[in-house]
Design a protein around this nucleic acid. Structure first.
Lengths: 159, 159
DNA sequence: ATTAAAGTGTATTAAATTAGTCCTATTTGA
DNA sequence: TCAAATAGGACTAATTTAATACACTTTAAT
């Protein structure tokens, strides 16, 4: 399993819930907790994180709440997931300066991770929040010219 | 971070190490542990798992060892990762029959996960083991017609 | 046939990460 | 001024993962 963590799942649910409503509407943590059947403390925590990442805007006070900072078409899954799980580098080797890489095989790990991270990030950047708000089949993607390419072969081979 | 787990990293290192040598050459767990600077028990465990997933072949006895079950061009990262981390569904909801989905919002999670899993699997199926054996830049992918499409735009939008 | 090298399977323990909760301060509209 | 709502941080419990150890089986060279 490539796990995204429960909290990341919850965050995606919250974001799509907000995205389903008019952009101007404000959502309190309490309302979202009820609508999404999630515990309130967890929802609060997630909304805070999403706010700090610039994906939500907040309005304090009695009639306050949260709404999207941008249009659902302009928010990618990569952004939401990064907000919760940190940057796309995997494990310590990617972030360290010159840390643990003693020999060449360790650097092989580093290269692998770089490649995989790039592939995954690219894939997740292609899916927008607006794609989650309606039930939908992911049967293919469009290339630059707008031609529909079936999923399996669209992936193609790397250069 | 989208974490793959250290063991999965190790498995990728082991597989690329084997892939770098001639296909007929046999590799003992001990040799691989030394070459990759990994503890022997861990290497044994990983080789067993990779064998059971059909990615490696084993030869017992005094001059035994492991080699690839298939050509490096025919083994995708998705296969190696799945071998270590299980199928691509994320968390429990994907595998359960009718388990915890009480209401619609839970099913929203389910839909999200299905979409994301599909995107990630597609991306990882496009990278082959042979792509890890040499340092290489991932600048683009080829579409069905063999046209090179830059990474960012190749991802395109979903249908 | 013997023996040593090598793979196979299971169980256990320790460590790291994640999930979830609580408390207090700050802001703002009625 | 009160009540509702966000903001920020700290803390605990639970889960998952990593790593190791041990006993067993198979094979092939001598």
């Amino acid at each position: 399993m490539i796990r995204l963590g429960k909290l990341t799942d919850y965050a995606l649910v919250l974001m799509s819930q907000i995205a389903r409503r008019p952009a101007s509407e404000l959502h309190t943590a309490r309302d979202l907790a009820v609508q999404c059947h999630l515990p309130l403390p967890t929802v609060s925590k997630l909304l805070k994180t999403l706010l700090q990442s610039g994906l939500l805007a907040s309005h304090r006070g009695v009639k306050g709440g949260y709404n999207l900072a941008r249009d659902p078409h302009a928010i990618s899954l990569a952004e939401i997931i990064s907000a919760l799980e940190g940057p796309f580098g995997l494990t310590e080797c990617s972030t360290d300066v010159e840390g643990l890489c003693d020999l060449e095989s360790s650097c092989a790990i580093k290269d692998n991770q770089r490649i995989i991270s790039q592939v995954l990030r690219g894939a997740l950047e292609s899916v927008m929040l607006s794609d989650l708000t309606r039930p939908m089949q992911l049967t293919g993607i469009r290339d630059k010219q707008g031609n529909l390419v079936p999923m399996a072969s669209a992936a193609g081979r790397m250069q």
